[in-house]
Design a protein around this nucleic acid. Structure first.
Lengths: 219, 219
DNA sequence: CATGGGTGTGACCGTTCGGTAACAAATGAC
DNA sequence: GTCATTTGTTACCGAACGGTCACACCCATG
């Protein structure tokens, strides 16, 4: 495999500059942020960039301005770290749901519109949420601990969206929810494969069309 | 990683039975089928089951009732094999397109309906086509030889579908095509993550709804 | 100052994996 | 039969990876 796996197992060149947190996400300079949090944040990003199997624990630790031992003192294994990143992503999703609900209380249609807008924004920016879909694609071995996290998230997301669609009072809330979920997952994977100019560019329009087709006004 | 990578690198137990092609796909007994073709067919299936990074060349060769050396005599590297399987999948897709066109010549709307039916069937059976989407998710390193194959396929698929939508005479053929592609990709990934009872179950219904919303009768 | 918990460092281990070398066995054409 | 091509077999290599150990270090609390 010519795949350039980003992990040199402590054989990093001696050209490490003192400003080593330059590769870390912005606003995450090693000061004041606990190593554990840096590791999780960095792992989230690197898993998204290189794939879970495509990045090694050494590279994650280094990118988080720490080392492998500290990583393993906080997470018993790489699988643990993967599960934690998935959990963090789930929490971010939960925060988005809460935000939508507080912004449009008791207005299911407006919440649905806000959901589309929010996800469309996420899609164009950092594509957060792909983590979980990608993990499901990469980690196919039965019994992998990440499966439980993935399944919980998927079920919860589907229940929330179905419930939201149901509260709009339309006829087939389940079908609308599943259609929107298909569009979302499709946009995520299409964005990775074909970029933003690919089919993913019409995600929002497709959602709006679907909403109107189901009788949910775009308020 | 607790990931049980299926590759024992020639350390397979000595319990190899003489009926060793039992693990090969049906209708592919080692007789009469050239090793090269067996390898490609087996690799397609194993890549789909375990992921490209999740299966080793040794396991592929063994499952194809041959060995690693023969594999490397036909394919210079694992990457070459990956590209070849992607190419084969592309050809299968091309055959499907040709079949649809011969079955409903000069009837774009019927062809579009047949496209939905065909992909829905593929989705429920062997999920052929996921290979390419999964490869795009797994192989993120820049310059990987598979990227060219993936991109070519994606562009061609999009052009074909857009052209088909355009021939129906509707107003926004590009949007319809992209919407259908999003639904398709979403159904593929959702099927892997949540099974057939998940959002993927309404793929066909979602497509039909979209078609009617765009003014394409479900003939 | 002492002490203890969190952290950094480097070496190390066992395994897996992609890929190769060398040689034997089969296969098929002439 | 002969000869060349294609397969099969085994052993091996180098690298990368997940994970561990032992030890030094820093730094806050007492």
């Amino acid at each position: 495999m010519s795949i350039a796996v980003v992990n040199k197992n402590a054989k990093r060149g001696s050209t490490v500059k003192p400003d080593q947190e330059s590769t870390s996400p912005p606003g995450l300079s090693s000061a004041k942020v606990a190593p554990r949090d840096r590791i999780v944040t960095t792992a989230c990003e690197l898993f998204r960039q290189h794939g879970i199997r495509g990045i090694g624990v050494d590279a994650i630790a280094e990118a988080a301005s720490t080392n492998k031992m500290t990583l393993y003192r906080h997470f018993g294994s790489k699988d643990d770290l993967v599960c934690e990143t998935l959990r963090v992503t789930s929490e971010k999703s939960g925060a988005m749901w809460a935000d939508i609900e507080t912004r449009f209380p008791d207005d299911a249609k407006a919440q649905l519109g806000a959901w589309v807008t929010a996800l469309s924004d996420c899609l164009q920016r950092d594509q957060f949420g792909c983590d979980i879909a990608n993990a499901a694609v990469e980690l196919k071995e039965a019994g992998h601990p990440a499966h439980a996290v993935i399944e919980t998230f998927k079920i919860l997301q589907r229940e929330k969206l179905t419930d939201l669609c149901r509260r709009t009072g339309i006829e087939e809330p389940e079908t609308l929810a599943d259609t929107l979920l298909l569009l979302l997952e499709g946009a995520r994977v299409s964005r990775q494969a074909s970029g933003l100019e690919g089919p993913a560019q019409c995600f929002q329009r497709a959602c709006r069309n679907t909403l109107t087709a189901f009788g949910v006004g775009t308020s």
